[in-house]
Design a protein around this nucleic acid. Structure first.
Lengths: 241, 241
DNA sequence: CGCATATTTGATAGATTTCAATTTATGTGG
DNA sequence: CCACATAAATTGAAATCTATCAAATATGCG
């Protein structure tokens, strides 16, 4: 349970909080001083067990994490993707009985931060409490948008939308990355989009044949951003930072 | 802009908070003392406009409210249903640029509570801040479950699940209401389940013909709770209070 | 009674899944 | 660096599910 003497491990988390919330220098220090315990997970490995009562939240330091739920038949639905710098289950602090799972999609480094420490910070600093709440509120918006696509979007829309979103999140807000690696298996892509792996493959094929985007070996190359955004009903301006 | 001299209007909101969070008597009083402004909405009326920057949250006092997002074609996807006592957009306090819409599904009475007042309470009382955060965290879980059904559930599953969920929420936790009125048009049901109104109708028909549940004129009668729960992949024990 | 809204039904087209191979990458030990 | 084993991607054909289009019935309300 090493204290994070190396301040930098929590730095990206602080950055992310600051992108949406305002914190005083003291509060920033408090965040950076949080205890953290690093662990590494191989791809396809679940982080913690589903249904576990967890005692810490997972900050992604490197790699990619998927949040998911699954039904009785074991079909899995990803409900969020978390890049480095994101706390994947901050809400666990106030709902430790939380019922979604986390899965390492790529080789991933996680910093585990005790709920207790996060909760104490929130109790002490109202601005931090508000910042944490705001993170969950942002989650709600993202999940709502995801539900919209799952419920109302065709296969092409869902796949294209996901690629658009990741392009923006990997790049800068103004300039979506047009070439990036997305360490998602087509099988995992199907879990994210609520489709079959076979159908994801065919959808990608048609997008490729139309010269819109290439997805090969987990490398994305967007050749026609405009068209992809239309297909994905993706609106950069209303994208949730 | 009447102060709520009638304390009772915020009472159900307090009850709901207390069902998940612990608050001191002083904090309870603070909640009950929140300013509230009542308004009535007819069915199918949107509450506030999509994209508006809102300045207050909407507590449902009577009726039924649907939270939704819609795509460019105007297809609507409901992402949550809110019964009396629930604050439909508490997250608006920390994300006033919030991007989902609210729609009165039945004739509905709303108590509008200023964000500013809610935010001030959260800043003053850390337990209230935590309770509010916990509400958003619970939202996240509900939305995740909803995304699972939208992405991985068949039509029957989605419809059955919704009926199960509402049965439990209208009744007590242990004893789902087997006969209740759910003021949802089949068209609205289709917005909730991500299906077509026509297909919802056929799905309801088949459930009816199998003697599982009757949905007629917005009245639900569940004749076989067990079967409905199986169809809906509904697990009472893991249902999110 | 009569319009407006909601439900129901039929027929058909279209999208997605399922099942079953086959081919293409990736990783590992020799 | 090659050969084999495993995981991932790709393809075809057929079955299912869901949407679409169009019309007929039923219900709520003034």
């Amino acid at each position: 349970m090493a204290r994070s003497d190396d301040v930098s491990s929590l730095k990206p988390f602080l950055e992310r909080l600051l992108s949406r919330s305002k914190l005083s220098p003291v509060e920033c220090e408090a965040i950076l001083g949080l205890p953290a315990h690093e662990r590494i997970f191989e791809p396809h490995r679940d982080i913690g067990r589903l249904g576990d009562n967890r005692s810490h939240s997972s900050l992604v330091l490197k790699g990619l994490v998927g949040r998911f739920m699954q039904n009785s038949r074991g079909d899995r639905q990803l409900t969020a993707l978390h890049l480095a710098g994101e706390m994947a289950d901050l809400d666990g602090v106030v709902r430790p009985d939380i019922m979604y799972g986390l899965e390492a999609l790529a080789t991933t480094t996680i910093a585990q931060v005790p709920h207790q420490a996060l909760r104490a910070l929130a109790q002490k600093h109202s601005a931090i409490a508000e910042a944490f709440w705001r993170e969950s509120a942002s989650d709600v918006i993202n999940l709502s948008r995801w539900a919209l696509h799952l419920g109302r979007g065709a296969a092409r829309t869902r796949v294209a939308n996901l690629l658009c979103e990741m392009a923006v999140r990997m790049g800068s807000v103004d300039a979506p990355e047009l070439e990036f690696s997305l360490p998602l298996t087509q099988d995992q892509l199907s879990d994210a989009t609520g489709l079959t792996a076979v159908h994801v493959n065919r959808t990608l094929k048609s997008l490729r044949e139309e010269g819109i985007v290439t997805y090969r070996l987990r490398e994305v190359r967007i050749s026609n951003w405009e068209a992809l955004a239309v297909e994905g009903e993706f609106n950069l301006s209303e994208f949730n930072r």
